[in-house]
Design a protein around this nucleic acid. Structure first.
Lengths: 180, 180
DNA sequence: GTCTATAGGAAGATAGAC
DNA sequence: GTCTATCTTCCTATAGAC
């Protein structure tokens, strides 16, 4: 019982890492099992199918965030770039890596992004709050993809706080209603 | 000879459409051949391998663009969002769809984005021009992914010129050196 | 030149031995 | 509970008939 939980944990860690690295299709059960040092059949035994394993692996506890002022908002979003310390959670990277080519991951991504947009929109004044929130969200998505998934040199070379500094005014312009 | 060229064209069109819709892995030679109304073996005969077919299909003539002032720059970038008329070229969408999960497409995307960054950087004053150019490029990447590949409702519902209007001040803040 | 048939391989999933 | 062996399916790629 205890042993099983630890084994499941190892499998999920290995799955997250592989899904994040190569996406759903190319991450094989066999490779995941090997990385977790278990038998491939055990993975099926525990999770039923590759699809269910993926769902378990990318399941994210949606970070609850109360509404806040526009300036804190920008800082929170910039912090979430998580160029900050270390990396984004593997589960998030796994979902992002697969979201353009795996229908299930796409649905999951849409849901997560929509939640994020809703959350941001609450803190943005003006009638086009949802559009602004959507643009802020997709902007962070694009920067994150460029930095974490495509490894663009132009972004990797630069320290995180400089990226945040350059990006800040642009995001400010999107949070305020007084700039149209 | 003439007939072959037309057949190749049909295959390439079908390939672009399918690669753009489902990505490299899920777009099978069989399905492409069926869409182009040819025999699957003919596709192999003409292009040698699926990989070579993909390369031919996403090959883009890099739009030559001379350097320009900062304001025109923003307008050109916004226009390229191509929320404008119709859609982005299928070849571009095909590359974007596959770039996170297919190594070859990733390399191609990095190259295209780097060229774009170089082009933009030439028109941006200040010493952090390349960083600013990279952020502008990834911002447009993110918005395009959200709009064209993830079909986010929050962006699809909105007319293109309103997106451009809301996005403009933020991009302006990135082109000018006077906002750090 | 075009298509039929099939080789050859890899994947997910399953049944049953240990 | 865990692993071995296999089934089934789907793919790319090739060889050869028409």
């Amino acid at each position: 019982m205890e042993r099983r939980r630890r084994t499941e944990g190892r499998i999920l860690d290995a799955a997250r890492a592989l899904f994040a690295e190569v996406g759903f299709e190319r991450a094989t059960i066999r490779a995941i099992a090997k990385a977790a040092e278990v038998d491939p059949a055990l993975v099926m035994q525990y999770f039923g199918s590759k699809q269910e394993l993926f769902q378990q692996a990318v399941r994210v506890t949606p970070v609850a965030g109360p509404d806040m002022g526009a300036e804190e908002l920008v800082e929170q979003v910039l912090g979430a770039l998580n160029l900050k310390m270390g990396e984004l959670p593997q589960s998030t990277l796994a979902m992002m890596r697969s979201m353009l080519t795996h229908p299930e991951a796409a649905a999951s991504a849409r849901q997560t992004l929509s939640r994020q947009i809703d959350r941001l929109a609450e803190s943005i004044p003006g009638e086009d709050a949802r559009l602004r929130a959507a643009l802020i969200t997709t902007i962070m998505l694009g920067v994150t993809i460029g930095h974490q998934l495509l490894d663009l040199d132009e972004l990797r070379e630069v320290p995180q706080d400089e990226i945040a500094r350059v990006l800040r005014p642009g995001l400010r312009a999107l949070t305020g209603p007084d700039v149209s």
